[in-house]
Amino acid sequence: MSCPLIPESFLNQLPSASVTALLRETLDHCPITLQTAIDDFGKAPFRFFNSWMNKDGFEQIIRDSRKKFKGYGTLDAYLAAKL
């Protein structure tokens, strides 16, 4: 989508840029904000589905992964790495 106010080169460099028009509450105009950064909250949390326990070989996979795990650091870091 093209916009006469925004150069195409800008959109090519920052494709995730977004513009928001704020409400006009105390001002005589509507302020416009430009956001160019993407919020990154890190890795998605681990999810476990009960249906996985019904899969053939599930228990063996758990046993094998527990044997292979090498932990380090404080107990809370060890537990987080293990999970």
Results as ranks from 00 to 15, higher is better:
residue 64 D to E: 04
residue 54 N to C: 10
residue 26 T to E: 11
residue 28 D to T: 07
residue 48 F to A: 04
residue 25 E to Y: 02
residue 49 F to V: 04
residue 49 F to T: 05
residue 61 I to Q: 13
residue 71 G to E: 10
residue 56 D to F: 00
residue 62 I to D: 07
residue 17 A to C: 12
residue 77 A to Q: 14
residue 31 P to G: 01
residue 2 S to M: 09
residue 30 C to R: 09
residue 72 Y to L: 01
residue 52 W to D: 05
residue 21 A to E: 00
residue 12 N to E: 15
residue 29 H to C: 12
residue 68 K to C: 05
residue 77 A to K: 15
residue 31 P to L: 01
residue 69 F to R: 04
residue 36 T to N: 02
residue 25 E to S: 02
residue 22 L to S: 05
residue 20 T to Y: 15
residue 42 G to S: 08
residue 4 P to Q: 08
residue 70 K to A: 06
residue 67 K to G: 12
residue 14 L to S: 09
residue 19 V to W: 14
residue 43 K to F: 09
residue 75 L to P: 05
residue 13 Q to N: 10
residue 37 A to F: 07
residue 44 A to P: 00
residue 22 L to R: 06
residue 17 A to R: 06
residue 75 L to W: 14
residue 38 I to V: 13
residue 42 G to W: 03
residue 59 E to C: 03
residue 15 P to I: 04
residue 83 L to E: 11
residue 9 S to N: 12
residue 12 N to H: 02
residue 11 L to D: 01
residue 16 S to I: 08
residue 8 E to Q: 15
residue 18 S to C: 11
residue 58 F to K: 02
residue 76 D to S: 12
residue 35 Q to T: 11
residue 5 L to Q: 09
residue 62 I to V: 15
residue 65 S to Y: 13
residue 22 L to M: 10
residue 20 T to A: 11
residue 68 K to P: 00
residue 69 F to P: 00
residue 80 A to T: 10
residue 18 S to F: 14
residue 32 I to P: 06
residue 80 A to L: 13
residue 47 R to F: 09
residue 18 S to L: 02
residue 46 F to K: 07
residue 42 G to L: 07
residue 52 W to S: 08
residue 68 K to T: 04
residue 2 S to G: 14
residue 81 A to M: 12
residue 14 L to A: 13
residue 78 Y to Q: 01
residue 18 S to Q: 09
residue 8 E to Y: 12
residue 23 L to M: 07
residue 13 Q to P: 00
residue 15 P to A: 10
residue 75 L to R: 09
residue 4 P to R: 10
residue 16 S to N: 13
residue 77 A to R: 15
residue 4 P to I: 11
residue 45 P to T: 14
residue 34 L to W: 03
residue 18 S to M: 04
residue 73 G to V: 15
residue 53 M to Y: 04
residue 6 I to L: 08
residue 16 S to R: 15
residue 26 T to K: 15
residue 50 N to M: 15
residue 73 G to A: 15
residue 53 M to W: 04
residue 81 A to H: 15
residue 23 L to N: 09
residue 20 T to W: 15
residue 54 N to S: 11
residue 54 N to K: 14
residue 39 D to Q: 06
residue 58 F to L: 04
residue 51 S to K: 08
residue 78 Y to N: 01
residue 72 Y to D: 03
residue 37 A to N: 08
residue 45 P to L: 08
residue 72 Y to G: 02
residue 82 K to G: 05
residue 48 F to R: 02
residue 10 F to P: 00
residue 67 K to W: 04
residue 16 S to H: 14
residue 3 C to Y: 14
residue 28 D to N: 06
residue 82 K to L: 07
residue 70 K to Q: 13
residue 20 T to F: 15
residue 50 N to P: 12
residue 23 L to Y: 00
residue 27 L to V: 01
residue 26 T to M: 07
residue 63 R to G: 11
